[in-house]
Amino acid sequence: MNLHAEDDVIAPVSSGTPVAALTPAPDADRAVASRTRTFDNARLRKDFAAQDAFLYLDDFLAPEVTAQLVHSARSLLDEVNRNYLPGHKQGGSVSRHTIDRLAPFIAELYRSKELIGWLEQLSGDQLQVSPADDPHAYALYYYTRPGDHIGWHYDTSYYEGRRYTLLLGVIDESSCRLDYELHTRNPEVPDQPGSVQIPPGGLVFFDGDKLRHRITPAGPNEMRVSLTFEYVTDPNMRPWRRFLSNMKDAIAYFGFRQVFRQMASRGKDAA
């Protein structure tokens, strides 16, 4: 089903109703293992290294997981926070804080030991989940109006270590593409451009500080939803970087109320 430019809702569930209460969720670890154990993981690890920490698979998620994510994405449409940064970004986002309340299966998938272990095989790094106050740890990104896009950027890590991005295709009723450039941080290797249209259940995994990328603009009556997971090698962050990260999240993605209300709530809990 396509989304008209003036609409941002497709049969959403009532606000405050957890998605898990409507449909039985699959077992995240079992579903991931059913896929990853069939892959040639040694070859995928070589591909990831040869492409300077980048991998694209057009068929990754088990069908029941994709179906659950599609249901979650449609059910959360009325929770989307839209942003517009002239010349760089237009679109909508749902942060991990909202997902925790209304779509807990996504959080379970993010923490799947099978998934994290497989990503560690690819990256060669020991990965950790992002801290509980990071709204980007897992988030849904919506392109539902003509011109929705994000310009060229890196997923810059404000953490002490590296931050890896796992991008999962959820809904693609659009002409949007992920354009990217490999090796831009390596002066010894020429930049290598590429472009993919990620189908539901597809995967892109990369080191956020190495991959320059963008999402091309959506056209009329189109809809694209992606899910990103962020994993880190060191969850520590210096205070001034925390401030920069929070401001970026508030302005460009989730809104001041979402970002700073969560911080205030944690402060009260600590007190």
Rank of each mutant, 00 (worst) to 15 (best):
F39P: 00
F39I: 08
F39Q: 04
D40V: 13
D40G: 00
N41V: 02
N41M: 03
A42G: 13
L44S: 09
L44C: 09
R45N: 02
R45A: 13
K46D: 15
K46G: 05
F48E: 10
A49F: 08
A49H: 14
A50S: 08
A50H: 01
Q51P: 02
Q51S: 04
A53I: 04
A53P: 00
F54S: 01
F54Q: 07
Y56P: 00
Y56N: 13
Y56T: 14
L57E: 11
L57T: 10
L57K: 10
D58E: 15
D58N: 14
D58R: 13
D59Q: 09
D59F: 03
D59M: 00
F60D: 00
F60A: 08
F60L: 03
F60S: 05
F60H: 02
A62H: 15
A62G: 05
A62P: 03
P63T: 09
P63S: 12
P63M: 07
E64C: 01
V65Y: 02
T66N: 08
T66I: 07
T66C: 08
T66D: 07
T66A: 03
A67T: 03
Q68A: 14
Q68F: 06
Q68L: 10
Q68G: 03
L69I: 05
L69E: 10
V70Q: 15
V70P: 04
V70I: 14
V70S: 13
H71Q: 09
H71F: 15
H71V: 01
S72G: 03
S72I: 11
A73D: 05
A73G: 12
R74E: 13
R74W: 10
R74C: 08
R74T: 06
S75M: 02
S75R: 13
L76V: 02
L77M: 15
D78C: 04
E79L: 12
E79S: 06
V80N: 10
N81I: 11
R82D: 04
R82V: 07
N83G: 06
N83C: 11
N83V: 05
Y84A: 05
Y84M: 00
Y84H: 11
L85W: 09
L85F: 07
P86G: 01
G87D: 11
G87E: 11
H88R: 05
H88A: 08
Q90R: 13
Q90N: 12
G92A: 01
S93I: 04
S93K: 09
V94E: 00
S95A: 06
S95Y: 04
H97Y: 15
T98Y: 08
T98V: 14
I99Y: 01
I99L: 14
I99E: 00
D100N: 02
R101H: 07
R101W: 09
L102C: 11
L102M: 10
A103L: 06
P104H: 04
P104G: 11
P104V: 02
F105D: 01
F105H: 04
F105V: 08
I106V: 14
A107T: 15
A107G: 14
E108Y: 02
E108W: 08
L109F: 10
Y110S: 05
Y110G: 06
Y110P: 03
R111H: 15
S112Y: 12
S112D: 05
S112Q: 04
S112H: 09
K113R: 15
E114C: 09
E114G: 04
E114A: 10
L115Q: 03
L115R: 06
I116T: 15
G117E: 13
G117C: 07
W118M: 00
L119P: 12
E120D: 06
Q121C: 03
L122P: 12
L122H: 10
L122S: 09
L122E: 09
S123W: 05
S123H: 05
